[in-house]
Simulated assay, not measured.
Amino acid sequence: MTVSRVVVLAALVALTVVFIYPFVWLVSASFKPQGEVFDNRLIPETFTVENYLSVWHEAPMLLWLGNTVLVTVLAAVTVTFSSALVAWGFAYFRFPGRGMLFGVVLATMMLPGAVTMVPTFLIWNTLGQVDTLTPLWAGNMFGSAFYIFLLRQFFLSLPRDVFEAAKLDGAGNWTMFRRIALPLTRPALIVTLIFEFQAAWTDLMRPLIYLRDSEKFTIPRGLKAVLDQFGFGGNWHWEIVVTASVITTVPMIILFFLGQRHFTEGIATTGVKG
């Protein structure tokens, strides 16, 4: 083994330790009693599972998890389908002004979220959807500029001859999109699903803006309430806070573990043809 290879491997190991240490510390702290949470031992001196029993009594975690799963699935599915539909239109059809229109779509990515936050709130408030879960996902039915760009690049890499042959066999545009384009772009679709699943699962801003009733809280909004009550609210039960954080982080780790093959394939093959 060459010296350069040893250096690269050592650097990778060091970076891996840096990245996983916070989560390892979080898991370790969740098994510690109140007085030992911040003792910086990765192996708890006093091991207890009482925190995992207490957190379900102190906060409606199961209800929050259910709300989050509902919002996350709806957000991921709707934005993936709508973005794929728009991306397919930009990739396959040839029409005047296509490049300019696509540039306008990409330009919306330059708008800070704070710019559209108030107008968007006013729209949902007029529709009577404040303090409901609808604003947390329904906007995704109109697609996302980033995902449209991502999927368009993947659609452009598909051989156009395949679609021309399908047209000769009598296939319509919708049939080609549903039965040819979508199956061939499955890795990119899974990447989009994973990206949006993670974004919706960890989204705190929109629940803070739209949700009032604690029974409608998602996990990030619920964690904020737990932090306010047990972290900064005078109780100082940080073992409850870190335990709730572990419970909400584990599903994301499982998701990335299950989808890592498709995730890697999608990233590696997206944008082959501009």
Rank of each mutant, 00 (worst) to 15 (best):
A87C: 08
V115H: 11
G66C: 01
S245Q: 14
K224N: 14
A225S: 14
V69F: 11
V86H: 00
T80R: 04
M1K: 07
L106Y: 07
W64T: 10
R261W: 02
I247D: 02
Q260C: 01
Q229C: 00
G99D: 15
A14G: 13
Q260Y: 01
A114R: 02
P207E: 12
D169V: 06
R5H: 04
Q129K: 12
F197D: 00
T243C: 10
R206V: 00
Q229N: 12
G271M: 09
I148N: 05
V104W: 13
A87W: 06
T108H: 03
V191K: 06
A114M: 09
S83C: 10
W201G: 06
A244C: 11
V118F: 07
P159T: 12
G35H: 14
G66N: 07
L208Y: 11
F263A: 05
A75Q: 13
V105W: 05
V241C: 07
V37S: 08
T132Q: 06
S83W: 10
L74Q: 10
L122N: 05
W56A: 03
F195G: 02
T132N: 08
G99E: 15
K216F: 07
N140L: 04
R160F: 05
F230T: 01
V86D: 00
V79K: 05
D203V: 09
I219D: 05
T16G: 15
L151F: 02
L189A: 08
S4Q: 10
T192Q: 03
Q260E: 02
T80I: 05
G66L: 07
V7N: 01
K273P: 00
V73Q: 09
F23W: 05
V115Q: 11
F195H: 06
G234D: 03
L150A: 06
A29E: 02
M110R: 01
V71S: 12
R94C: 05
F121L: 11
D169R: 08
M205C: 01
V49T: 10
A59W: 08
L106C: 07
W201M: 06
T2Q: 03
I194D: 00
V7D: 00
L156C: 11
M117T: 08
F154E: 08
R206H: 13
F31C: 06
L258Q: 03
L85P: 04
P187L: 05
F177E: 08
E265D: 12
L211D: 06
D228W: 01
F47T: 04
R212G: 11
I253N: 09
F102V: 04
L42Q: 07
F121P: 05
L62C: 01
R152S: 02
E196R: 14
V226F: 10
R178P: 00
V18R: 08
A114V: 14
L211M: 12
L122D: 02
A59C: 04
H262N: 13
L111C: 04
V3W: 11
D39E: 07
V6G: 06
R178W: 13
I209Y: 08
A10D: 02
V226L: 15
Q34P: 05
N173L: 14
G139V: 08
F197E: 01
D131A: 05
G143A: 10
G172Q: 09
F81V: 15
N67M: 07
T16R: 00
